[in-house]
Design a protein around this nucleic acid. Structure first.
Lengths: 142, 142
DNA sequence: TCCAATTGATTACTTAGGTAACTAAATTAT
DNA sequence: ATAATTTAGTTACCTAAGTAATCAATTGGA
């Protein structure tokens, strides 16, 4: 079996998915990277920017940009922390109010994309990929 | 189970993989997008730019850029086709000569990343993901 | 204590991909 | 046969993520 093929499929899937999310959120003026941040803040609550980076496994610079944009749109507020270096990111009331609509659109889209895929298969693949990722990251620190 | 998690894992894997390929090819002055093109040309032979796009599932503009860069580096030649609109992309002798080294580096890296993953599991996941992709693409054209 | 190293965030610049609008060549239809 | 449409490729501009370098605040060690 070709490892090339496998990796190519993963890339293609990733690109197709972001494309779908972007299309879905276009009516709300949001992009996929912004949605990822909004989702984490809604489900985990306010947190420092660095925690968002770690959670989403994204470097600091792209996170700065995404958050500044969300702030410009009034969906997020950067509150200085006790440690004056950190900025704690909060969802605004405006974001909390609009969130259910966003979530509904994304969930509907997600379900549509995988509706033909049995639940156990999703579970199996999710566990396998997560496991691979862990092993790769582990390798890199050896 | 959260679809969010699954999609997030796929994105993260995709990013980790391109990062690895970029690191691996850095000594040769090549980037992951270029490698994808070189690999297809080596295994499938010369083909029009549009065929490369279709094969790699990438839009025309990024392909133009990647190919122009490869041409600048002398790894690829754009030969006008019978149809004067098409440009047939050929590997140069320089590319053929260097290819084995590139391939060895990438294959070694690929194997290292998945060495702990049993062969059948790779196969299963590859088939599942490919199947999903097909279903998604199918959906979009309904 | 005070200097050195670390950490959180930003800025500048890069790769990688996407859409929209365009040109030139080829094909189809009237 | 010519006008209309389609196709291959490019240009301009966008999102998304990465590295390198920098700044300010904090922490640790001599």
């Amino acid at each position: 079996m070709e490892t090339h093929e496998l990796f190519h499929t993963i890339h293609q899937l990733s690109r197709t998915l972001t494309k779908q999310v972007n299309e879905t959120l276009h009516p709300f003026g949001l992009y996929s990277a912004q949605w990822a941040v909004l989702f984490v803040l809604k489900t985990k609550g306010a947190m420092p920017q660095s925690a968002l980076c770690e959670y989403l496994a994204v470097e600091a610079p792209p996170m700065t940009r995404t958050i500044q944009r969300l702030a410009r749109q009034g969906y997020v507020q950067q509150v200085p922390g006790e440690d004056k270096r950190v900025k704690v990111i909060h969802l605004t009331d405006k974001a909390h109010e609009a969130y259910p609509e966003w979530e509904k659109a994304v969930l509907t889209m997600n379900d549509r994309l995988l509706e033909q895929v049995p639940w156990e298969q999703r579970m199996l693949v999710q566990m396998a990929l997560h496991d691979w990722l862990g092993k790769m990251k582990g390798d890199l620190h050896e």
